[in-house]
């Protein structure tokens, strides 16, 4: 929709050109969320497009995803054959409520920064032990695991003016076998619960990531051979009832139910 309150669009060619930051400024990535709601408190958009960041960089260390990488670019990514967990990429891209047409514009960084429980890029990058690089206006840089970056429903660790530069997925995580479970109230709709498990090929430890059902991602590391009861105990201990999201895409009780159900299925699938 037209954002009637926007008076200025800045199109810098690098982050260092943006020295000042004021209330009412917003980074513009794909714009697919920004342009989907009135933004009456925003008057200036600062376009990231001109930064020209390489969307995807493969290295010995793993995969570097630029914040401005579009969903469609990630979906088209051809991973090296031993990156077993790359199978999560198309699954998570398909976990948007948004149509594939919106993937042509929407970015991975934008999805992280929205920090919605149903953010599938959050599910993907937190399950794959991603670490994001954040740039602040004073030129400093800090790094934070994605699972810590998102702190609540539409809340994250970003400070005013700070920018998500990229997300790094470590090689070890990309090589793990995985299990994926998702539920939506309407077919191909918005995620009500999205759980991912990965298994360490060396010690068979399971990393379970709970997203969509809860206000923020929750992660659990279980040793090989963990029992259902242990998984349940861990969920019980970490996620209080009021940490399950209550909105029109699912009730908190059903989300909790799905979380336990899927956690058990993932445990069974990944346990050897």
């Amino acid at each position: 929709m037209d954002l009637h309150t926007i008076t200025t669009v800045l199109r810098p060619s690098g982050a260092d050109e943006v020295q000042t930051w004021a209330d009412g400024h917003a980074w513009l990535a794909g714009g697919t969320w920004l342009f989907s709601e009135p933004q009456v408190h925003t008057d200036t958009l600062i376009d990231l497009e001109g930064f020209g960041w390489e969307p995807l960089k493969v290295s010995d260390a793993g995969l570097e995803i630029a914040a401005t990488c579009r969903i469609v670019q990630l979906d088209n990514f051809k991973a090296p054959p031993d990156w077993v967990a790359a199978g999560l990429i198309p699954r998570c891209c398909r976990s948007f409520l948004a149509s594939y047409k919106i993937w042509n514009e929407a970015t991975v960084g934008g999805n992280l920064v929205m920090s919605l429980p149903a953010g599938p890029m959050i599910s993907l990058t937190s399950a794959l032990e991603g670490v994001c690089t954040l740039w602040s206006r004073d030129g400093t840089e800090r790094r934070l695991p994605v699972a810590e970056f998102v702190t609540g429903d539409n809340r994250n660790a970003l400070r005013p003016g700070e920018l998500v530069r990229s997300i790094h997925l470590p090689l070890a995580a990309l090589r793990k076998p995985f299990a994926f479970r998702r539920f939506t109230l309407t077919n191909l709709g918005r995620s009500e619960a999205l759980l991912i498990g990965t298994r360490d090929p060396d010690d068979a430890a399971i990393l379970l990531t709970v997203t969509a059902a809860t206000l923020r991602p929750y992660q659990f590391r279980f040793p090989a051979g963990v029992s259902n009861a242990e998984v349940r105990n861990a969920l019980d201990g970490a996620i209080a009832d009021d940490r399950y999201l209550d909105d029109t895409h699912g009730s908190p009780r059903h989300r909790k139910h799905l979380t336990y159900l899927f956690a058990e299925q993932i445990r069974a699938e990944l346990g050897v």
Binding site: L28, G31, T32, F35, S36, D47, S99, N104, E105
Partner: peptide, 8 residues
């Protein structure tokens, strides 16, 4: 194809 209502 894009949703033109979302595109600046």
């Amino acid at each position: 194809p894009v949703h033109s209502c979302l595109m600046p």
